[in-house]
Simulated scan of single mutants.
Amino acid sequence: MTGPEHHQHIDLNGRAAIVTGAGSGIGRATAIALARAGARVLGVGRRREALQATADQHPGIAVHPADLRDPDAPAGVVEAATERWGRVDVLVNNAGATAMMPLAETGADRVTALFALNVTAPSLLAAVALPHLREASGTIVNVSSTYGHRPLPGAAHYAASKAAIEQLTRSWALELAPEGVRVNALAPGPTESEALSAAGLPEAAVAQVKEAEAARVPLGRRGEPDEVAQWVLRLADPGTTWLTGQVLTIDGGLELT
Results as ranks from 00 to 15, higher is better:
residue 183 V to F: 05
residue 65 P to Q: 11
residue 2 T to Q: 11
residue 104 A to W: 08
residue 71 P to S: 04
residue 18 I to W: 01
residue 153 P to F: 11
residue 95 A to F: 01
residue 16 A to G: 07
residue 37 A to Q: 00
residue 214 A to E: 06
residue 171 S to W: 05
residue 41 V to I: 01
residue 177 A to E: 09
residue 123 S to T: 15
residue 25 G to C: 03
residue 48 R to Q: 12
residue 111 V to D: 10
residue 17 A to T: 02
residue 174 L to M: 07
residue 249 T to W: 11
residue 243 L to T: 14
residue 92 V to L: 07
residue 10 I to Q: 00
residue 248 L to R: 10
residue 66 A to Y: 01
residue 136 A to I: 08
residue 29 A to K: 06
residue 39 A to R: 00
residue 51 L to N: 08
residue 108 A to V: 15
residue 193 S to C: 06
residue 85 W to A: 08
residue 204 A to H: 14
residue 189 G to Q: 08
residue 206 V to H: 04
residue 244 T to I: 09
residue 187 A to G: 11
residue 53 A to M: 07
residue 228 V to Y: 10
residue 249 T to L: 09
residue 252 G to C: 01
residue 113 A to T: 13
residue 93 N to D: 03
residue 219 L to E: 14
residue 39 A to N: 02
residue 220 G to Q: 09
residue 193 S to P: 02
residue 156 A to F: 13
residue 78 V to E: 11
residue 47 R to T: 15
residue 124 L to R: 15
residue 133 L to W: 08
residue 83 E to H: 12
residue 105 E to K: 06
residue 229 A to E: 12
residue 179 E to G: 07
residue 249 T to N: 07
residue 106 T to F: 05
residue 252 G to H: 04
residue 6 H to E: 12
residue 86 G to Q: 05
residue 142 N to L: 00
residue 245 G to F: 08
residue 127 A to I: 03
residue 186 L to Y: 11
residue 188 P to V: 02
residue 56 D to E: 15
residue 59 P to Q: 10
residue 166 E to P: 06
residue 48 R to G: 13
residue 21 G to K: 00
residue 9 H to L: 12
residue 202 P to D: 14
residue 115 F to G: 07
residue 83 E to F: 05
residue 21 G to P: 04
residue 125 L to Q: 03
residue 146 T to H: 11
residue 95 A to N: 09
residue 94 N to S: 03
residue 52 Q to T: 13
residue 178 P to V: 05
residue 167 Q to L: 14
residue 100 M to P: 05
residue 209 V to W: 00
residue 63 V to P: 02
residue 72 D to G: 13
residue 144 S to A: 14
residue 2 T to C: 07
residue 221 R to L: 08
residue 75 A to H: 13
residue 91 L to S: 01
residue 220 G to F: 07
residue 110 R to L: 10
residue 158 Y to D: 09
residue 166 E to Q: 11
residue 50 A to P: 05
residue 230 Q to I: 06
residue 143 V to Q: 11
residue 82 T to R: 15
residue 55 A to V: 02
residue 50 A to H: 10
residue 224 E to S: 05
residue 254 L to S: 04
residue 213 E to P: 03
residue 22 A to L: 00
residue 62 A to E: 15
residue 222 R to I: 14
residue 110 R to F: 03
residue 222 R to P: 01
residue 254 L to T: 01
residue 31 A to T: 01
residue 257 T to S: 12
residue 79 E to Q: 15
residue 251 D to L: 01
residue 218 P to A: 04
residue 81 A to I: 00
residue 209 V to L: 13
residue 110 R to K: 15
residue 60 G to N: 13
residue 250 I to L: 15
residue 9 H to A: 14
residue 186 L to S: 01
residue 253 G to L: 03
residue 122 P to H: 03
residue 92 V to Y: 09
residue 150 R to W: 04
residue 134 R to G: 02
residue 54 T to D: 13
residue 65 P to H: 04
residue 9 H to G: 06
residue 56 D to W: 02
residue 204 A to E: 14
residue 158 Y to I: 12
residue 227 E to R: 07
residue 133 L to M: 10
residue 46 R to W: 06
residue 240 T to R: 06
residue 55 A to Q: 09
residue 246 Q to R: 13
residue 60 G to Q: 06
residue 92 V to P: 12
